[in-house]
Design a protein around this nucleic acid. Structure first.
Length: 122
RNA sequence: UAAGCAAGCCGUCUUAUCGCUGCGUAUGCAAAUACGGAGAGGAAAGUCCGGGCAGCACAGAGCACCGUACUUCCUAACGGGAAGGGAUGAUUUUGGUGACGAAAUCAUUACAGACAGGGCCACAGAAAAUAUACCGUCCUUGCUUCGGCAGGGAUAAGGGUGAAAAGGUGGGGUAAGAGCCCACCGCUCGGCUGGCGACAGCAGAGGCAGGGUAAACCUUACGGGCUGAAAGGCCAAAUAGGUUCCGCCACCUUCGGGUAAAGGGCGGCUCGUCCUUAUGCGGAAUGGGUAGGCUGAUGGAUCCAGCGCGUGAGUGCUGGGCUAGAUAAAUGAUAAGAGUUUCCUGCAAAGGAAAAACAGAACCCGGCUUACAGGCUUGCUUAUUUU
RNA sequence: GCUCGGUUCGUCUAGGGGUUAGGACGCGUCCCUUUCACGGACGAAACACGGGUUCGAUUCCCGUACCGAGUA
C-alpha cells in the first residue's frame, strides 16, 4: 500500500467506535505539545491509522468555533499524514486541542508536523 | 436630497488545486473507482409555547394538580396572530364659576370576578374598614384669679398623617355641621335602542348602598392522560448461558446397594484415606439478545407565480418547481482576483492599509424571545433645494 | 438532544411583600498578654441583570446572562 501521496481522509481513517475510543483513553500513552495533546495506541488490525479530533466545549462555547477548529486540524492531518506512512506499526490517535484561542492555519500546520515527527521517532 | 420610524427583502462573489457527505449513471462478486449534479440559517440559537409522529395507559364521571383569562375571528393547534372594545397616560383644541366634560392625534395595556368566602394592608396617623373623635367647631353644666379649666353632649365641614381617610363642585340649611335638602358631575340599578359580541347611546329610578390587594389564597369559565426519536420497528457477529435432538457409562443386584475403573486432594513415593463421575462431556439445530448495522429520516399544515374572496390575520382555485440529510456527526482548507464599507495620501485620476456581523441543521413543522457589520425596496413624518 | 434546579458580604449560608437583610469562618482597628495564640469590644463588606404587578419587590410574574444536576 503506497499512500505517500494520498491526501484523502476517508471514513475508515476516522475513529468512531465507542469501544475503541474507551480502550484508547484507558490504555493509550500521550504526548503533550502545545496546543495539542496526542493520545495514541498501536493496533494490529488491517485498518489504517485512525484519528479522532476533540475540541472542548468548556473552552469554546459556540459550535461555530468548535467546528472551525476541528476542520482546520483535519486539514492539517490530511496534508501531513504521509509522515506516519513510513512507520511500522499502525496507530489509533486522538488529537485534543487544549488552547483557548482560535488558531491560524500555518501555525497549526507547523505544530502538527512537529508532534507527528515525535510520534514517528518513538 | 438628508434624518427618524414602521414593514418587507438580502446578508459577499469568481477561478484554480487538494478534500468531505448523500444522490444518479457506468464498471465491479464486493470493497471501491470514474463521470455528472446537489450540499446550513434568518435566526439553524434559547428550548418559552403549540402541533404532527411514535410507544404505553384508557367505560364514563368527579376530585386533585398544572395552564390560560376583554370580545369576535384566523389556524392542525397555540400562551401566537388579525380586527375591534374598554381603561390609563401625553399633546392640542374646546365648553363650564367649579367639580369636570367633549373632540382629534399618539403611546401603553397579563384587561374575568373584591356583593362567594375568609386573609393581609408595615411606618405614620384619632381612626386602615361595622369609624370608640387627636387638634378643631358648636351647645350646655359647674368652678373661676375672667386668661381659662373640668364634666356631659352634638359634629366627619376644616387641620395634620398616609400609597389610600369613607363620593365631588356650587348653593340652601343649621347652634355648629352633615346627601340633611336642591342643581350639576360621578356612581349604582333595572329598561329600551344599536351591535354577532366586548360595549356604546338614550331616557328613567335611587341620596349613594361601604378603600386596596386575585403576577397572595380563592371563585368562575375553558383547556390539559403520561413519555419523547437516546421514542418505536427490523436484521444480527464473537463469547457465555437457555431449549431441543443425537452420541458417549464395566459388572452384579432381592433396585436398598455393592464391587471395580477414571480423574483430583492430602503425601517425597507406595500403601492408605477423602471427594467427583449423566444436574456430566462432545456435536448439531434453534429462540431471546449484546457489539454493530438498517429503518424511523426528509415530498411537506412545502415553495413560487397568477386570479378570486376577506378591512385583516388568512383562505380557495389553476399552473409550475423539488430545495441538506450528517450520525464521535459532512457542507472545508490554501492561493489569487473582484465587489462593499471605513481611514490615509492626492485638485482629480488613482494608490496604500484595515474591516466584513450574529452565528452551524441533528425527526419535522407553526409561532414567540434573544443576537446581528452592512446594504436594498416601499410607506409615513420632519427639514432643505429646484420647478 | 431532552428535562429539572439555582444565583444574597471575600467564602458557606438564613430570610419567601414593610427587616438597620441575620449568622459562622475570614478581614481591619482597639483591649487583654513581656510577645504570639486564645478570648473580648467595635467596624467594613452582599440581594446576577432588565422590565412589569403593587403604595412598597431580595421575596410575586416575564425575559436575559451565568452556574449546576439528571437522563444512554
Amino acid at each position: 500500500m503506497d499512500d505517500a501521496l494520498n491526501f484523502r481522509f476517508t471514513k475508515a481513517e476516522r475513529l468512531s467506535s465507542k469501544k475503541k475510543i474507551e480502550e484508547l483513553f484507558a490504555k493509550g500513552s500521550s504526548i503533550y505539545l502545545y496546543p495539542f495533546r496526542l493520545v495514541y495506541i498501536a493496533h494490529t488490525e488491517p485498518a489504517p491509522h485512525q484519528l479522532l479530533i476533540s475540541v472542548s466545549k468548556r473552552n469554546f462555547k459556540k459550535a461555530v468555533d468548535r467546528n472551525r477548529i476541528k476542520r482546520l486540524i483535519r486539514e492539517t492531518y490530511r496534508t501531513n499524514k504521509h509522515l506516519l506512512s513510513a512507520s511500522e506499526s499502525k496507530y489509533r490517535l486522538a488529537l485534543i486541542y487544549t488552547a483557548k484561542e482560535i488558531p491560524e492555519f500555518k501555525h497549526l500546520n507547523q505544530k502538527l508536523i512537529e508532534i507527528l515527527s515525535r510520534l514517528k521517532n518513538m
